[in-house]
Nucleic acid binder design. Structure first.
Lengths: 340, 340
DNA sequence: GCAATAATGAGGTACGTACCTCATGTAAAG
DNA sequence: CTTTACATGAGGTACGTACCTCATTATTGC
């Protein structure tokens, strides 16, 4: 049987009331008493029964996910996972809501974050581009006592355990090695497409990609990044130009979650059928593309894991508990048609 | 606020005692009353608060993992994850123990399973070779009221949700496609090594491997499987023979978790440096091998996820709850040096 | 219509923790 | 030495559920 507060009180030689005062950080306790209780906690290995505590507090956890409105299928997938998690975490008194960021500029986003009511929410998971304004708004929100994690896009001030997502530099390196291997003996150019050069994620992936190609696959020529802006017409033009300028395009790398705006137009732009295509983020579209072989490799992160990990991390912080780091690390997944 | 048993009683127009009788399946309740309560459950969306219930029952969950004694680093890793999980699930009153199977023959294993005391354990996770004897022993254990899942090795009678692990056929296909792509323009032979041909897992992987190589990479010649029996000396001989017989060995595929008995001896056996090596299961050894490039690709399953998934599944079955299938699906992970 | 039996309700205690009140203890300040 | 402030203990109630007892009501068989 696990020791209870009663056992703790007995072992520490104090009353239950004092144990309660120490455990919950109430005032009016002598330092020596606090010490006695803490020593006893270590000695008998007391761990607070959180479910009983929550029952007594009749308290739950209200979490909020702040996601970009125009995030495409990837964000839609996250929203679905949140709905699932809502059901799965209901037994733990966790309730999760989603709120969308219609704004794009850092100022409006930080205003939205500042407007979050501390009495309405216990934790917030934010997916937003890394900017100084957002970074500061997050710091203010934390200062107001809210448990905040950032997901997918790492913010510069995130310390250990506050960011849930993958290392994008490593993801880019992974893409590069697979590109090099899959292209094989062919030599030629690699087109790199991103939604916008603004996004830090895409830039990091690109940097990782270049690092590996330059050192390990010097016969490949990586062309400057092209921006899609999520606009199919623009993409068609870009691809035609690229295919025209260099006839020997061996690979296409789509660094951001915008594969659906690129892959359908590759064939029409005159790319060879054996051009190696690598993209990011698992969505219904990219799954279909893997199956019909218009996509060779997908580099992704598990969005269900992302969501649950964010929830567990916010909850652990509120409960002042340690997290199981190995469980919360989000892995860079490689998906091909066979391990879909 | 979530509805409680009190709300349920009021809504159903019965007493709390009757609600209790219905919820816990006690006798002495008219069918019409049971019906009234069940209707009310649906109407107000009552969900039993499991943590409060467990608190009242002062009940925990005692789970046991039954693992092969001689499982190498892979099983050692699982044991470590179990220790971690023990800490992480302590808040849910879950306690996990490990027991090793020193026996190898199906009869002794099934005897061990039969010897498990129903009053000592609430759930058992079994990792054992698929045999009719083991299958039947598991069925008997289930009949005695224990929540049983099988891990890593699927048993033939496992129905939906009772097996936690990967699809080995798909894992073999994945290995094959990466072998084909990594070998690239080279043609030649592929050596396949397994610990023993007895194991179903290895045979399934081999079947998947052959299927893809035959249809997609016909220039590769896959040689008959060679058994290592975990014996380095034997392996050295095997490799020398193989290298001697066909000079053009382009790839090596190790289907079972026995990479540590193979990879160190490839170079000495006279394999070319660019021979593509693919193996299974992430362990300290295979991680090192990826880093020092003696291994190109690792196909693996996340053992931490495996363990937690087994625990969640056993627990959900005991609580008569649904599991979140998407969370419990174990993915086939591809690891290269960049996404380690 | 009566007894026998089955079904139901009312009310209690317990689980481990939080949070409250009130009485009593002890040490520092005057 | 007294006053005051602070520290501590004792005891209660509550959370949502399980499980128990006992009294009361409804239903069945005869």
């Amino acid at each position: 049987m696990r020791p209870t507060t009663k056992d703790l009180a007995k072992h520490a030689g104090v009353s239950l009331a004092s144990v309660d005062r120490v455990l919950n950080g109430r005032s009016g306790v002598r330092k020596s008493t606090i010490e006695k209780v803490n020593v006893a906690i270590g000695e008998i290995g007391f761990v607070r029964d959180i479910s009983a505590a929550n029952l007594a507090r009749r308290k739950g956890y209200r979490f909020m996910f702040l996601l970009p409105k125009s995030g495409g299928e990837f964000v839609e997938g996250i929203v679905e996972r949140i709905a699932e998690a809502n059901r799965a975490f209901a037994v733990d008194r966790v309730q999760v809501d989603v709120s969308f960021l219609t704004e794009n500029d850092p100022h409006s986003i930080s205003a939205r974050i500042d407007a979050i009511g501390v009495d309405q929410v216990d934790g917030v998971a934010i997916m937003a581009p890394a900017t100084p304004q957002v970074r500061d708004a997050i710091a203010r929100l934390r200062a107001r006592g809210v448990s905040v994690v950032t997901i997918v896009s790492k913010q510069p001030n995130d310390v250990d355990g506050q960011f849930i997502g993958i290392d994008n530099m490593a993801a880019g390196k992974t893409a590069a090695r697979l590109m090099g291997k899959f292209v094989g003996a062919r030599t030629g150019a690699v087109i790199v497409l991103c939604e916008t050069m603004q996004a830090l994620d895409g830039r990091e992936r690109r940097a990782g990609f270049d690092a590996i190609v330059n050192t390990e696959f010097p016969t490949l020529r990586v062309l400057p990044s092209l921006e899609t802006h999520g606009d199919p017409e623009r993409v068609k033009g870009i691809l035609r130009n690229a295919a025209g300028a260099s006839a020997d395009i061996a690979g296409v790398y789509v660094t951001s979650a915008t594969a659906e705006h690129v892959i359908p137009y590759l064939r029409d732009a005159g790319m060879r059928a054996d051009t190696v295509v690598i993209a990011h983020e698992r969505t219904p579209f990219t799954e279909r593309a893997l199956r019909d072989r218009s996509l060779d490799v997908l580099i992704t992160q598990n969005s269900g894991h992302l969501v649950r990990s964010a929830i567990r991390t916010m909850k652990a912080r509120i409960d002042r508990r340690e997290i199981l780091t190995s469980q919360e690390k989000v892995r860079i997944e490689i998906v091909i048609q066979d391990n879909l």
